[in-house]
Design a protein around this nucleic acid. Structure first.
Lengths: 112, 112
DNA sequence: ATACTATACCAAGGAATGCTAGGTGTCAAG
DNA sequence: CTTGACACCTAGCATTCCTTGGTATAGTAT
């Protein structure tokens, strides 16, 4: 899939992934790829800064650990993060509903 | 609804609106607001540049007319535009499907 | 007459955000 | 001992939507 379509929706995805338990960045990327069936194969340069942003915003909390000589920064949802996830989930439904309404307009010549 | 969520999907919406017949910019804004039940109430500064972009890209063709003393720039889909609409409609479905897969992950604590 | 609203267009600049490109370092396999 | 997987990071670019402000006509209200 050609990327750049998830503008503004990445936070929702990250929060959703981390809602199932704390994970470190690399694992988040992996989980995102797996769950989306390879559709979201995001570069590190996309995910790491986004995690930092959510951390700074107080929606995530991070903690350093070392596993087999490799340092990891593990993220977990804060209470505010869980609240934000609920809001963004709702916003996503409103958004997709509105798009569907526009797409399903008058004529459907190319989507049988 | 708080805007800025449609990043990257505006083109799809505009093409879909114009697929039902040629319209001028102002009418496009109107139609978008009506069809989305007020969800997409886009400022002119968003829509006009986007139409210009699609025009320049060859997905739309424009034509000046004057109606009741007011000049209008009317846009219609080109063949390439119709093709792009089909592609983007498909991409939209892939995208939403993938997001749904991520959101519907393991646990659904806040969406009964 | 005059002001205001709706119609109808435009461009410049800012802000957000995802991506490219590059960098560091550990560990296991070949 | 080199390659690849793991694991992290930042700087700067590009895209794109929005804010702001500008122009102009027509109809309606004051």
């Amino acid at each position: 899939m050609r990327g750049q379509a998830l503008k503004g929706h990445l936070d929702l995805l990250l929060l959703a992934i981390l809602a199932d338990g704390a994970k470190h960045g690399y694992a988040v990327i992996d989980e995102l790829r797996t769950r989306s069936d390879e559709t979201f194969d995001l570069p590190e340069g996309t995910v790491y800064p986004a995690l930092h942003r959510l951390d700074k915003a107080g929606l995530l909390a991070s903690e350093w650990t070392v596993v087999q000589g490799r340092r990891r920064r593990t993220y977990r949802l804060t209470d505010r993060g869980r609240g934000a996830l609920g809001e963004q989930r709702h916003a996503w439904q409103v958004f997709t509903g509105a798009v569907q309404s526009v797409l399903g307009g008058v004529s459907w010549p190319d989507t049988p």
